[in-house]
Design a protein around this nucleic acid. Structure first.
Lengths: 232, 232
DNA sequence: CGCTCTCTTGATAGACTTCAATGTTAGTGG
DNA sequence: CCACTAACATTGAAGTCTATCAAGAGAGCG
């Protein structure tokens, strides 16, 4: 789960003994809204979730997509109120752990604190890379980059191989993450498909030409901070 | 300095007793480059700095601007290598504290750890808001939003009042932060000026119509997590 | 079978970029 | 005090990318 941090057995055991409330949600269900002050940390046990923010005009910005093992709101340990919302992308089951229990764990195992801090720092690194995409990459490069990132993350977590991975999004979700219109995302996808670079149907993404897609995206996985693995 | 966290006197004293190396840099000087593995945390004592990343094609994305008191690379406590660069915007003097000393402080005062973690979380919140700007706001709204953010931060730090603050950037810096061209930033500025909303000359920003600028920006300062202050 | 959601397509408009030139300002050295 | 220089800001023209609007085609679901 914490593929970025080396944790001792004792720490893993302590982690597994935390009191967890498990709950399932349907597709497109809001877990937390902007402004709420949750008393629990939640993480994905199965399925997919995403973070987003709604603007007054009805526009939406998606910040990140999350898969099995990702913790969604660690930040509430240090900052009480949510400045974004969290919702499900598919049928999803989440685990909820009271802040108090997490704090006790952190107090007991300093290494654990570092690991959690690191998770939020990697989150920030992904945000920065998305900023690069929205600010300075073409729409095509931006889409390609997100695909490379998505696959790399899943491969590192042992959830994907052979350049195939899940991508259970609508084109509109993708558009809202990349700062594009759904129409334009559709057209970008068509060119990527027609050039034989990728295939994406029914939530399954296949990257047919990894090296070429990397080049288009300008993808350098360093920012993912995945440790010693190589994602080639 | 840490206007977001309540720290005890003992904690503040311990913080002030850290071994600091002080060094000054000229305008436009690189402090840290992408890929480096610094052994010190650095913070701004005087002047201005910014975080950025360079793309192979020569494009630049600026992530954030930093003023007195901001810590620039707290993340290296948990993630060794820089995935972005840091440079100065003006003549700037920085303080450098060895990681080891910071770690010892953190071990001694858990509250201090939380405060530092919080700093990095607020960083991430600013990144998210910038994503909203680049993805879903108009160029004008985006510029206006950055102005509001800049002023609010400085006001909260006690460095500005009366809707006047420093903004020691070139239009190109601003463009690289917002994902726009310098030409277009120039035109946006002209409309903001001609509508009497702002004035910006010689590094001094004056927001003449705060409420209207807020409205154009869709500015809601919650994400800055500044505590009890109001920035109206 | 009909409904809804998503994807696809076309046409048009607008926002923003690029290229290139000119104006402005502050700093430097004679 | 003035000429010279180097940044930076401003302007214009042209073109590209992407958004918006609107409509139709599939696909999944009850």
């Amino acid at each position: 789960m914490e593929s970025r941090s080396a944790l001792s057995d004792a720490e893993c055991q302590a982690f597994e003994q935390l009191p967890v409330r498990v709950q399932s949600f349907p597709t497109g269900h809001d877990i937390l809204r902007e402004g709420e002050k949750p008393s629990h940390c939640c993480f994905v046990i199965d399925g997919w979730a995403f973070r987003y923010k709604l603007l007054p005009e009805g526009k939406r910005q998606v910040f990140s997509f999350h898969m099995i093992g990702d913790i969604l709101n660690l930040q509430n340990l240090c900052i009480p109120s949510m400045d974004y919302a969290i919702a499900t992308l598919t049928k999803t089951t989440l685990g909820f752990i009271p802040h108090q229990a997490v704090r006790e764990l952190a107090a007991q195992y300093p290494n654990m604190t570092a690991a959690m801090w690191r998770e939020t720092l990697v989150d920030a690194a992904l945000f920065r890379e998305r900023m690069v995409g929205m600010g300075r990459r073409s729409a095509t490069g931006n889409v390609a980059h997100l695909f490379c990132e998505f696959y790399s993350k899943q491969e590192a977590a042992g959830l994907a191989s052979k350049h195939r991975c899940f991508l259970p999004l609508t084109q509109t979700d993708l558009a809202d993450a990349l700062g594009l219109s759904n129409v334009h995302v559709n057209r970008v996808l068509q060119t990527l498909r027609s050039e034989g670079l990728i295939s994406w149907r029914g939530g399954l993404l296949i990257i047919k030409e990894w090296d070429n897609l990397n080049k288009i995206a300008g993808f350098d996985p360093t920012y993912l901070h995945l440790g010693h693995r190589t994602t080639g």
